[in-house]
């Protein structure tokens, strides 16, 4: 028991200590990343606002992340809805295959997509190609979240709405949609976060317009820029934590609204 507790603490230290270094050096008044710390500054954050190339990369990333979130959530709603319906042929293998990108190595996905897009379809690399690829890797997460939301619903709720005179579509809109809304928001936020800091696929598939993670990687070649990267990373980590927390809160609210017990989640 005692050993397990020490293990758990060590695990958490290894996981989070490096992340705590980010804000530490982001506010450190020195060009090099080393102890001892030499004083407080917001200089590196000011530098961020003056870097036009970085701002373009951030804008790119936001567009990609927002589009990915919407696309993967819409597709996720369709898949989760199909999964709650009565059994249709190949339903199980199909649902399994949809979830596969969750465990596929991203580098494999990235390389094969690059081959397909450039060699097979002869298309150029653009934001659109990254959006398509990010949608592919975000969909399993969307489906996992939305599946929970849809499957927690009593099928009699939809029948009751039909019975009270609503059409299939209005029953969906008036009863199902509001009840799965927390799941939808949760799915949007998770996909957005995953896409925003995804590197490997974006690195392979971005054309002349790098995303933020790809741009940051490029900066690493210039040691003088390291504290700026630290500042950027601080903002990213804060944003990710905030978004994931909101996503989890929405998921729990959804469970509570449907009057159900919590059976686990991402946080």
């Amino acid at each position: 028991m005692r050993g397990l507790r020490i293990y758990a603490i060590a695990y958490l230290v290894f996981l989070y200590a490096p992340i705590f270094l980010l804000p530490l050096f982001a506010f450190n008044d020195a060009d090099i990343i080393a102890f001892p710390l030499s004083g407080f500054t917001t200089h590196w954050f000011e530098e961020l606002t003056r870097n036009a190339a970085l701002q373009a990369a951030v804008r790119n990333s936001l567009i990609i992340a927002a589009s990915t979130a919407v696309l993967s959530t819409i597709l996720g709603i369709c898949a989760a809805r199909a999964a709650t319906m009565a059994d249709w042929p190949l339903k199980r293998p199909m649902m399994g295959l949809i979830m596969l990108p969750l465990v596929l190595p991203e580098i494999i996905v990235a390389v094969s997509l690059l081959v397909v897009i450039v060699q097979v379809f002869g298309l150029g690399l653009s934001n659109a190609t990254i959006i398509a690829a990010h949608t592919l890797i975000c969909m399993p997460f969307s489906i996992a979240v939305l599946n929970g939301a849809f499957q927690n619903l009593d099928p009699a709720l939809e029948e009751a709405a039909l019975d009270l005179g609503e059409s299939r579509w209005s029953a969906f809109r008036l009863v199902i949609l509001p009840l799965v809304m927390p799941g939808i928001i949760s799915s949007l936020l998770i996909s957005f976060t995953i896409s925003l800091d995804e590197f490997i696929i974006a690195f392979f598939l971005s054309g002349a317009n790098p995303t933020m993670p790809v741009y940051i990687w490029g900066l690493l070649r210039f040691p003088g820029q390291l504290p700026v990267v630290m500042a950027m990373g601080t903002i990213l980590v804060a944003l990710s934590i905030i978004l994931l927390t909101i996503a989890e809160l929405m998921r729990r609210r959804g469970l509570k609204r449907a009057g159900l017990k919590d059976t686990g989640g991402f946080l």
Binding site: D154, A156, L157, E159, A160, D163, V175, P178, L179, G259
Partner: peptide, 11 residues
């Protein structure tokens, strides 16, 4: 219909 689970809309 009155459903066995009542199907009261929780929202």
């Amino acid at each position: 219909m009155v459903f066995q689970s009542y199907a009261i809309f929780p929202h």
